[in-house]
Design a protein around this nucleic acid. Structure first.
Lengths: 247, 247
DNA sequence: CGAGCACTTGATCGCTTTCAATAGCTGTGG
DNA sequence: CCACAGCTATTGAAAGCGATCAAGTGCTCG
């Protein structure tokens, strides 16, 4: 169920993730080489992009939309282990099988490369490998932050942590940056939030209601969130209150 | 409190982690360049190697011994986010501050490089960057596996998971590999295990006793563990029972 | 209007935590 | 040699938090 991709995306120069993706450091000539082997794929919300255990023939970047990385136990318990936003990289050069399910949460467009040619490009183009290393180190940091959330925080703190992560990301993307109050749409269902945080969807719902009742957040509909005071939210998350979210 | 380092270690060719560390893919001439800028540091069990937030002037590899990466919240809750074994890399090229505490769990010897020269080496030596990328991707996989443990497994499953991880690692290092029964020493206190798994030390102790009572493990002293049946342990960990631990 | 879905809310259960006491081990000093 | 402190680990009892089971709400879409 591929969605035809707008032709406008075909030019790397106009690409919205040009400066943040794996190609961020490429020189014009390197970019052109990439341009020759790239292709776009689209997936609808809910579609599984890659099945855990399958052989992965391609790697790529999220151009628009959101996807999740999840692990599932035999009895059905599932844990989200990655949240893929525009510019994030999917796939692992130098390894055959996919270790996780990759699922499109919203409609999504990806900029893909067949694995072999990409690996060759990587070997020939240090700028790509350098950028990929940097991105992977950032992901590792994020994963470790997440481990603290999963291992040691209460349900309320977990919710506050997730909200502050999403708010911070929106701030770093949106043109007007980090203002108070902050407003955004949750890209995840209650169930997906639960899988992110190692909770049940009922607990997520309850804690969202509690944060709303206590004035930490405001809700319009189920997904539209307003944070009147970011510092307050950070405190609820159990993070260092000083310094704030501009790190 | 530096421990003087045996001179025997000075030669990369004789180095016990030569083929697994960040230098694994280096050619002889590249290795020689590294040899010129490397130096050894030793730390005693319990010593903090790097404090979270400090500026990090060096990077390096664990040569022998064990260290942990931990994050601590203001109120003292702590979560281990990394377990550093021989050949593992410490430090982050291209970033100033250290995001975690690094603590020596046992006496430890590290092969260090001042950060600047190492970064220059990295830029000039693709083999190092390639290897570091591969190692970082492996760590990321491990962190994500760990996230499933933290988010979705019961206390009993968590303990079983940790034991199977340690057993597997020992098997991959020891000459006779994976035999049943498997025997090893726990490199961690009950408290460190608790910090690893997001539990309290009392729960760790209780579940260790329970696994012992049920015959999944045998204990001599507090730290010496025998696993009569690895498959049984894997089942208790909630992992895929088939395929086993030779992946 | 009714089916289906995402979400909310309530009541109860049970696992893990918390608080507390005890055991076992090691090293120190009388 | 024994007493004692200090540490790690074990075990018990009680409390609390999040899970589970269950009902109900609000919305969209046919």
């Amino acid at each position: 169920m591929q969605i035809p991709t707008p032709h406008a995306l075909a030019k790397c120069d106009d690409c919205p993730i040009r400066h943040r993706a794996v190609c961020a450091r490429c020189e014009p000539n390197e970019l052109q080489s990439l341009e020759e082997i790239k292709y776009y794929r689209s997936f609808e919300a809910g579609q599984t992009i890659i099945w855990s255990g399958d052989k992965m023939g391609f790697v790529g970047s999220v151009v628009s939309g959101i996807a999740t990385l999840t692990q599932t136990m035999e009895d059905g318990r599932t844990q989200m282990v990655g949240l893929l936003l525009p510019s994030d990289f999917v796939g692992r050069p130098g390894r055959e099988g996919a270790p996780y399910d990759v699922v499109a949460t919203t409609d999504i467009v990806m900029c893909c490369f067949r694995k072999k040619p990409f690996e060759q490009m990587m070997a020939a183009t240090p700028h790509i490998a350098q950028r990929l290393l940097q991105m992977t180190l950032d992901e590792l940091d994020a994963a470790r932050e997440w481990m603290l959330v999963l291992g040691r925080k209460t349900a309320r703190e977990k919710i506050a942590s997730l909200l502050s992560i999403i708010a911070r990301r929106d701030a770093s993307v949106s043109p007007n940056g980090a203002q108070s109050p902050m407003v955004f749409d949750l890209p995840l269902t209650r169930e997906a939030m639960a899988d992110y945080l190692g909770l049940t969807l009922e607990t997520v719902s309850r804690q969202m209601s509690a944060l709303k009742k206590d004035g930490v957040i405001r809700l319009e509909g189920k997904r539209h969130v307003t944070v009147p005071d970011m510092c307050r939210l950070m405190e609820e998350a159990g993070d260092d209150s000083d310094g704030g979210f501009l790190v």
